[in-house]
Simulated scan of single mutants.
Amino acid sequence: MEWPEYWICASWPDNARVRGVFTSRHGGNSVGPYGAGGGSIAARTGGMNLGSHVGDDPAAVAANRARLGALSPGLQVVYLDQVHGTGVADLDTWDRRSVPQADAAVTTTPGLAACVLVADCLPVLLAAPGGTAVAAAHAGWRGLAGGVLENTLKALCGKAQCEPSAVQVWLGPAIGPLHFEVGEDVREAFVDRQAESATAFRMTRPGKWMADLFMLARLRLQAAGVSAALVHGGGVCTVSERQGYYTFRHDRITGRQAGLVWIAAPGITMERQG
């Protein structure tokens, strides 16, 4: 069966046990503003909203989450209580009942998926060599400026006992540089910590700038020791391609898509969803 429209399967060269997926607004059970893109809002169906906090029908969200969990036999997707911060949850010590409050998660446990939900913010997936550890991070501008990627990378490398230069990274869909206008405070939050970040901002009018989240993430990862050649993806804009992805900045009332990554158990292959 084919992947639902606009889903992105992250490939991990020489890291056969790692699986990663970025979902879209297509392929599920939600309707209305949470439905798949195209046509009038009232007529929309087939939405893959995974957010339980955005006003969607809880039964539709539960069905969508069940479908995501069926990507691989025995897969358990761990959802976070995201607060636009820099905390990293250790899923290896998770009690499997509570909802961790964090904006990133790391694990070495096969079949346990680190997952972040987004609708313009940047989802970032990371994998250690040999599939010994994986992590997912929710990188909105606040978390990105505050160090969520550096914290996630540190936690991942600590788990895997590897160097940042060996870590593979995938950047998922997010609001692109033609649509993400920010104020001087946002620019200063990045440039004050990393001068090179100035290249990721383009002035549109006095005190206003277009920001490139993809470039900002790459710059922060490279400064933390990640090889530029091992950073994949990026460049897919949720606003420009809003028929395929949820976008909070454009729609306000909308769903959430996911970026998730996990270690497959030996002999397990990913099940394709149609």
Rank of each mutant, 00 (worst) to 15 (best):
R65N: 01
L68K: 03
A36D: 04
M48C: 14
G69Q: 11
L50G: 10
G38R: 03
G47N: 02
L71Q: 02
A59F: 03
L75C: 02
A42W: 06
V54C: 14
R44M: 09
A36I: 07
S72R: 10
L68Q: 01
A66Y: 07
G55H: 06
V77T: 13
A43P: 00
A59K: 07
H53W: 12
I41K: 02
A43I: 00
V54N: 15
G35H: 08
P58I: 06
A62M: 09
S40I: 10
P58C: 06
P73V: 09
G51I: 05
V54W: 03
G74R: 08
A42G: 11
I41V: 14
G74M: 12
A62K: 10
N49L: 09
A43L: 01
L75Q: 01
L71G: 02
A43N: 10
D56T: 09
P33Y: 13
R67C: 08
S40L: 15
Y34I: 00
A70R: 14
A42Q: 11
S72L: 14
P73Q: 10
P33E: 12
S52D: 15
G38P: 04
R67N: 08
H53K: 12
R44Y: 04
G38H: 04
V77F: 03
L50F: 13
R67Q: 14
V61A: 03
H53L: 09
G69V: 05
A66H: 12
V54P: 00
T45R: 15
L68A: 05
G37F: 00
P58F: 06
A62E: 14
V54A: 11
Y34Q: 00
V77Q: 04
D56P: 13
S52A: 15
